[in-house]
Computed example of a mutant assay.
Amino acid sequence: MFKRNRLKRVRERLAAFATEMREKASRLPPGIEQENLLRKARQADVAARLDEWATSRGLQPPK
């Protein structure tokens, strides 16, 4: 049970990080810095999905 809760917290942190990066990017004018923040947000989303997939019982390919 401990391991599952810890993994859930990691996914929650990744989701919070992605949200924070999107909020920061929305306050910036279009440009390289904004794109970098949006890229970090997408990477955090992918990392959360991959982590969920890798730790799932069914282990099915990502959608």
Rank of each mutant, 00 (worst) to 15 (best):
A15E: 04
R4H: 07
R6Q: 15
L7V: 03
V46Q: 04
P29L: 15
R27F: 04
V46I: 14
L38R: 04
Q34K: 13
M21C: 13
K63F: 12
A44L: 02
E23K: 08
K24F: 04
N36L: 11
N5Y: 06
M21A: 15
S56T: 02
L14I: 01
L28Y: 03
A47I: 01
L37I: 05
A44Y: 02
K63C: 06
R27Y: 08
T55P: 01
L14Y: 02
R11Q: 07
A44P: 00
R9I: 07
L38Y: 03
E12W: 01
L59K: 11
A44H: 04
G31P: 06
K8L: 09
F2G: 05
R42H: 13
K63M: 01
D51A: 10
E12G: 15
R4N: 10
A54W: 12
V10F: 01
A48Y: 00
A47S: 03
K3E: 14
K3D: 13
E52P: 03
L50I: 09
R57F: 15
A16P: 02
G31C: 03
R4D: 05
E20G: 14
P29Q: 14
L7I: 09
K24S: 07
A15P: 05
A25Y: 04
K63H: 04
A44R: 01
F2I: 09
L14E: 00
R22G: 11
R9M: 12
F2R: 03
Q43M: 12
A54G: 07
R6A: 13
P29M: 12
D51E: 06
E35F: 12
R11L: 04
K24V: 05
R6L: 12
R27G: 14
G58W: 11
E35Y: 11
R11P: 01
P30K: 06
L37E: 02
E20N: 12
T19N: 08
R39Y: 14
R27H: 08
E20L: 05
A25Q: 01
K3N: 08
E33D: 12
E12S: 13
T19G: 13
T19H: 06
E52A: 08
R11F: 00
M1P: 11
V46T: 10
S26Q: 13
R27T: 11
L59E: 01
L50G: 10
K8C: 06
D51S: 10
L38F: 09
R39K: 11
D51V: 02
E33S: 10
T55Y: 12
